[in-house]
């Protein structure tokens, strides 16, 4: 039974997609009054998304049925144990993803320059590069090169951060002759 339950778990993603395909139409238009602008016989702005939602529903239903079918037909006891998979460090992977998201938050508060400096250093340490004599120069020189290419040369309006950090970023740019 636990094996069958495990197989049924694989039916959760298609089930969720199927439910979403039925719920999403409610959120399609912001206010339904807008639909009054559509002329008679016209496809309108809801036609295409509705076709897509239908196709998504059909495909996910097909997938769901297949997963449930294989789960129910599977023998209750596992015939052969699956070959042991290579150990995969899930914790490292999810920490990595969290740090990437935090980098996005940091850019808005600390500004691109300081957030990038910090991120480069943290990522290197996470990835196993721990010697301070490698981490510091790579992070500092890397940030400087990125600043010169994207802020000075390409003139991209990257965030300067908020409060003290905005002032700090502007001073940094002035010190680097970017401004």
């Amino acid at each position: 039974m636990p094996r069958r339950a495990k197989l049924l778990l694989k039916a959760v993603p298609p089930a969720l997609i199927l439910i979403a395909a039925f719920v999403l139409p409610r959120f399609m238009l912001q206010n339904q009054n807008m639909a009054a602008m559509i002329g008679e016989g016209e496809a309108g702005p809801t036609f295409w998304p509705n076709v897509m939602l239908t196709l998504v529903a059909i495909c996910s239903a097909f997938w769901l049925v297949r997963e449930v079918w294989t789960a129910l037909r599977a023998p209750a006891v596992a015939g052969e144990a699956p070959p042991p998979a290579a150990p995969y460090n899930w914790r490292l992977a999810w920490t990595g993803l969290a740090i990437v998201i935090l980098y996005g938050v940091a850019i808005q508060y600390l500004g691109f320059a300081f957030a990038t400096l910090l991120f480069l250093a943290v990522w290197l340490i996470l990835g196993g590069v721990r010697r301070p004599l490698t981490v510091a120069p790579v992070a500092v020189i890397g940030t400087l090169v990125l600043l010169y290419v994207f802020v000075a040369l390409a003139q991209m309006p990257l965030d300067r951060g908020r409060g003290v950090f905005a002032g700090g970023t502007i001073e940094l740019y002035q010190a680097l002759r970017i401004y």
């Binding site: 120069p137 020189i141 940030t143 400087l144 001073e171 010190a175 680097l176």
Partner: peptide, 8 residues
């Protein structure tokens, strides 16, 4: 790079 540290 020292300049950067100083600004920081």
């Amino acid at each position: 790079p020292l300049r950067l540290v100083a600004v920081g």
